[in-house]
Design a binder for these strands. Structure first.
Lengths: 202, 202
DNA sequence: CGGAGGGTTGATTCCCCTCAAAATCAGTGG
DNA sequence: CCACTGATTTTGAGGGGAATCAACCCTCCG
């Protein structure tokens, strides 16, 4: 969908399916920045900076509406409210990246996993694709590893631990919260950063 | 300057001095999101979300221009170009956080340190506070540790390594690039994400 | 002169990586 | 229906990078 270093990209609004954005290092390893789910806006930086600084790739089959560069920039000058809305979306995005940063910097593997899957759960619930019980999740352990800065092997062990602790089960594409409250406590999860009221229009 | 959980903040444009933004975890540990230097805009999320999701604290004595919430939101609707400029600034900010994320996820301690100090160098050069030789840097090893997701002790060891390898010297508040090219190579540093042309105005 | 903050170094521990190999599963074609 | 392939999950063994704990030093400052 978007390729690092290339120019002339569009932005997209995801209608269905999952995608992921990531960066590749010279060493060949990959760091996943985040996952995009239905309702998400992606590619803003690719438009503003003209040349994309990251990649976006579908994980499942994705349907998305294309938002062309010209349209977006025109719309900004013509409809300030839209500009504010996009700014707000970008800020929510940044808040998620920041929380992800905290994950990698100051949480151990299990807390990281728990926090990450909780966040994903809240986001999916906001678009009606999950509930307090759990959700369907097409992510492989390799993808989780590249997102959480772990090895795939260790992802597997951590998932086993969480399962044996009776907090969370992730198997066969399904995340099940076995003990939601314990999990929230364990991960130090505060959903405030996902709950802001939408653009502060005036 | 800004306190997590509090409402009614302003944004600021730093005129002189250094600040840092960070999050605190229940465990008491701290993850520094980034450092603000002269010319940087900070506190946008605190305004858009009404309640701040992070803290900002001065490191040295800071002089900054306050940008009040009302002013900013009014200006958006009245001056679309300004909105685009702010959006652009926010995106550059996010690009830096993303690169920081890659640091924590996929680089070892030494590469992380090198990459971080190189980025800081480029940013400082853009505002005339450093050159290819190096720059003045008021950050303690504790601050570096909390930014890079390391312990202060290990920060010290890594700095010693880099010094003994003849790549970089950080002592007495001065960063000196002993071998800039080697350092860039070692860190896998690409400055593209800092070099975009400024707001794409129309 | 005592105390605090920051820097430096050593010893030990442990979290997570790497390497390696089964086991399971989905799809594919004979 | 089964053999074959490739992707994914699972488990084990061993090693290493960074944390932790614990000193000791220096400088600055009231």
């Amino acid at each position: 969908m978007i390729h690092q270093g290339q120019v002339g990209h569009s932005a997209y609004i995801v209608a269905s399916g999952w995608a992921c954005s990531y960066k590749l290092l010279p060493s060949g390893s990959r760091q996943i920045i985040g996952f995009q789910i239905p309702g998400d806006f992606l590619g803003l930086r690719a438009i503003l900076f003209r040349t994309a600084d990251h990649n976006v790739e579908p994980i499942t089959r994705v349907q998305a509406s294309e938002v062309k560069e010209d349209f977006l920039l025109d719309a900004f000058t013509r409809t300030p409210r839209l500009a504010t809305a996009v700014l707000w979306a970008a800020s929510r995005d940044e808040a998620m990246v920041v929380e992800h940063l905290v994950d990698l910097g100051r949480r151990n593997a299990a807390e990281r996993m728990a926090h990450f899957l909780l966040e994903l759960g809240v986001r999916l619930r906001l678009v009606g694709m999950g509930d307090r019980e759990g959700y369907l999740c097409p992510l492989s352990q390799y993808l989780l590893a590249d997102a959480l800065g772990l090895s795939a092997v260790h992802v597997n062990r951590v998932l086993r631990e969480l399962r044996e602790e009776g907090m969370l089960t992730f198997q066969k594409g399904k995340v099940v919260f076995d003990d939601y409250d314990a999990l929230v406590e364990f991960a130090g999860f505060h959903r405030a950063y996902l709950d802001h009221d939408g653009p502060l229009l005036r």
